[in-house]
Amino acid sequence: QVTPQEKEAIERLKALGFPEGLVIQAYFACEKNENLAANFLLQQN
Rank of each mutant, 00 (worst) to 15 (best):
C30W: 05
Q1E: 09
V23D: 03
A9D: 07
L42A: 12
F18W: 14
T3M: 11
L22R: 12
T3V: 10
F28T: 13
R12Y: 03
A29L: 04
F40S: 10
N45S: 08
Q25K: 02
A29I: 05
Y27G: 02
F40H: 11
N39G: 09
K7Q: 15
I10Q: 02
C30V: 04
R12H: 05
A26V: 07
E6F: 04
E8Y: 07
E6K: 03
Q43D: 04
L36W: 08
E11T: 12
F18A: 10
P4V: 11
L42E: 15
P19W: 01
A29F: 02
E11M: 12
G21F: 04
L36H: 09
A29G: 08
P4N: 15
L42W: 10
I24V: 11
Q1W: 03
A26E: 05
Y27V: 03
A9E: 04
A29W: 03
K7P: 03
F28N: 15
L42R: 15
Q44W: 06
L36I: 04
A38T: 09
N39V: 05
I10S: 00
P4F: 12
E31D: 12
L22Q: 15
F28D: 13
G21I: 07
A37M: 01
A26K: 05
L36C: 11
P19F: 07
T3Y: 05
Q25S: 11
K7R: 14
V2T: 11
L42S: 13
F28S: 14
P19M: 05
V2A: 07
C30K: 08
K32N: 06
N35M: 06
E8A: 11
Y27W: 12
N45E: 06
L42D: 12
C30A: 08
R12T: 03
E6A: 11
V2R: 09
Q44H: 11
P4Y: 12
V23C: 11
N39Q: 14
F40R: 13
V23E: 02
F28C: 10
Q5D: 08
V23N: 01
P19E: 13
L36R: 14
C30G: 03
N45M: 00
K7F: 07
E31V: 03
F18L: 06
G21P: 15
P19S: 08
L42T: 09
E31T: 04
N33W: 00
N39I: 06
Q44V: 04
A9C: 04
R12K: 10
A29M: 15
V23L: 02
Q1K: 13
Q1V: 04
K7M: 14
Q1I: 09
N33G: 01
F40E: 09
E31R: 07
L41F: 01
V23W: 00
K32P: 00
